[in-house]
Design a protein around this nucleic acid. Structure first.
Lengths: 248, 248
DNA sequence: TAGTGGTCTAGACCACCAT
DNA sequence: TGGTGGTCTAGACCACTAT
């Protein structure tokens, strides 16, 4: 049924390995929306691990909103296509896969400028889905990175490789945390160019802020403007404990 | 040091009891920002429970962004004041507490209208912080609820009691899940009335959608418009496993 | 009744940080 | 070196769902 096996020798935690496998199968349609993924006991026996470890892996899927656990029934794939993981713009490729779309990146600006702490890479990308005719762009992503920290970064082709992929593979830096601020951006020449004319739209939702790695070192300043055609859903589920309101 | 004790007889899970206690102490300043909460082993010994249970409680705080765990150092309070829990509008009171502000609710509309499935309660509230002079309103919250499901709901005073508090205490309904859509709302008579004139602001961020209870029954339709003076931060932290981008 | 997820125990070993 | 959080095992009992 599956050729997949966990590797206890791998430094990657077992729950992460299992999580990645399950996530992959959900995104590629092996476990379609509405269906149950294998039960916790089944995965425990299949992989020879504890149910605690299985539950840890599944809990990551739950917190991502990819599955829902229902006692007595099972763990059901409840993929809500455009959810708050959109904020995690690093995951645009995964997002595209789940939409069964091919991601397209167009680099609008890739230049080196002098910043307060030395030269910086200014990278402006339009990201969207491929179509038969012209691509549909869904967001407009502006990044600023210190070249003193990432020497040579300005030479990569960011239409072929994602920024985070390059950072991970060539600079061994993985973004771990972001602090974004939401605002409303006005229409501009750039938004008209990327999203087209949007009559009746007073502005665009914009998330801007900083991204940090596991050592709390600044990775990039970023600003993402979202297309109005991207229906952004913010799904929140909280257990009985979380976010109950208490009388004032 | 603490008079607090977990009650194993309570049907509330132990990890939820501990979570609530820790959360309370963080919000009221017992554990100030930057300080560490007690270590996992300390809480294990103090309450006579397993470290697994302690970790379960702490993991809820982590997913809320209230604390950050650093190996070798401890679990530090890293309260980021205005984070994505703003979306969980049910938690406005908690949010106010963390800001060391007193929450104020002004009911703008409370009326019964005929809806597609019978009479509905239409509730429009401005919510904000109390000041010495006039309150500062931070959001504009419109709710629609079916009166056939919540008979008598139209008689409550929602300036004194929160909607979710009433639902929980009088109808035994607890919201568990929401599905919100983000959009940009235009300035209107209502926003001018509540937020005042906002020159240069093209629109307001608006989250609208539905809220469900644990049985997936619809609780309310809701729409929340956020004041531009509310700096909305969306903090995301993902472990090495979550949201890594894969080459396209 | 059999199977599912929900909670909890009582350990173990490890990597990392402070001293 | 001692304490912290990170991972994992091997169970147990429960509540709920399907049949």
């Amino acid at each position: 049924m599956t050729e997949f096996a966990l590797d206890p020798q791998d430094s990657t935690p077992l729950y992460t390995q299992l999580y990645r496998d399950l996530r992959q199968r959900i995104l590629d349609g092996t476990y379609p929306e509405g269906d149950a993924i294998p039960s916790e006991t089944a995965m425990r026996d299949l992989h020879g691990i504890t149910r605690s470890t299985v539950r840890h892996a599944v809990s990551l899927l739950v917190s991502e909103g990819l599955v829902r656990q229902i006692r007595g029934k099972g763990t059901l794939v409840t993929y809500t296509p455009i959810n708050h993981s959109v904020w995690n713009f690093g995951g645009f490729t995964d997002f595209s896969k789940a939409q069964h779309q091919r991601p397209v990146t167009k680099v609008l600006t890739q230049s080196v400028e002098e910043g307060p702490r030395g030269p910086q890479l200014l990278l402006v990308r339009a990201r969207g889905f491929a179509n038969d005719d012209a691509p549909t762009y869904l967001n407009l992503d502006t990044s600023v990175l210190e070249l003193s920290r990432f020497p040579g970064l300005e030479r990569f082709d960011f239409e072929r490789h994602s920024l985070y992929q390059v950072l991970r593979e060539h600079y061994e830096v993985a973004p771990v945390r972001n602090e974004l601020k939401l605002s409303v951006a006005l229409s501009s020449e750039l938004t008209r160019q990327v999203f087209g004319e949007q009559p009746g739209v007073p502005g665009f939702i914009c998330a801007s802020g900083e991204v940090y790695d596991s050592s709390d070192q600044l990775v990039e300043h970023t600003s993402v403007i979202y297309s109005p055609s991207l229906e952004m859903h913010v799904g929140t589920s909280w257990n009985g404990a979380v976010n109950e309101s208490v009388p004032a």
